[in-house]
Amino acid sequence: MNNWERFLNIDRRWIYLLIAIVVIVPFFIRMGLPVVPTQEVRSVYDLVDSLGPDDAIFIGWDFDPGTEAENQPMGVAVLRHAFARHVPVFVTAYWPLAQGLAEMGLASVFDTRVPGNFVYVPWAEWESVRAAGYAGRDSLESAWEAAGNSLPEGARGWVFEGVDLANLGYLPYFSLVILGMGTSIANQYPTDAYGNNLHDMPILQAHKNLREVDLAVTLAGSTACMSWVVYGTSRVGLPVAFGVTAVMATDYFPYIQSGQIVGMMGGLRGAAEYEVLETEGGYTETTGKAYRGMDVQSLAHILIILLVILGNIAYFAGGFHKKTAMKNRR
């Protein structure tokens, strides 16, 4: 076995170690590389940016914990954007485990220790204000503040459950749930994830089915996202935007070109682009987790490219291209 062969048959654990190093190091040494938003992400951002309190969006937590690192920052970024513009948000979960992830996403936006976050007002908490008569979000906010509540320092705004947010939660066979929501959201979800009656909520009274919803952002690590296109876009004309893992992104370019989806956030890069757009738009002070992850991703990609180049150098220098296919199994 010559040196080249030895190099090509290197114990793969050395490669794993190199990857571990390039993944860990950027967390300590920030590079802050620039991220330029692509048209695919900008389309999603622009659509959310054009909406207001009279509109509504769905954010579908359609991924498993496995792809949390890629999908969760997308969800958090869109949530922040929607809340900042007072766009009512319905949150759903495609998988049982995704409901917990959705709640974690919401919790990170409602963490009042973080400046620029939102203050969550649960449905039961503003019952007294509601009892006096609900006449729109602005008057609700005024009445709530007149009742002695004030925004903590650094907080960006209130999120009233039932007006700005309805966390619908998980239901089995979610494709059929989307189909059913085309007719009536309340028929599918009589109560929200916390057992509150959805019929009583102003958000549902104003948006009774998917025809009255302006956008669904589906965050997925599998083809779950296609259910929104098949049962939402095709059946009731629901505009859908994708937030998918990087490996899946290439699959969905045809849908952008045909106009079946509004836009797409592909992998961590897509989430980072959304964060950059939000910061540019003045919705956040600083970019979030996805942007920080771009340093890691840059280095990892460079390392993989280097490994491919080195592998090819060894392959040709060792003269393996002249031999029959070398079985490289360990």
Partner: peptide, 8 residues
């Protein structure tokens, strides 16, 4: 390279 900021 196009997928990461270093490409930019």
């Amino acid at each position: 390279l196009a997928q990461v900021p270093i490409g930019d």
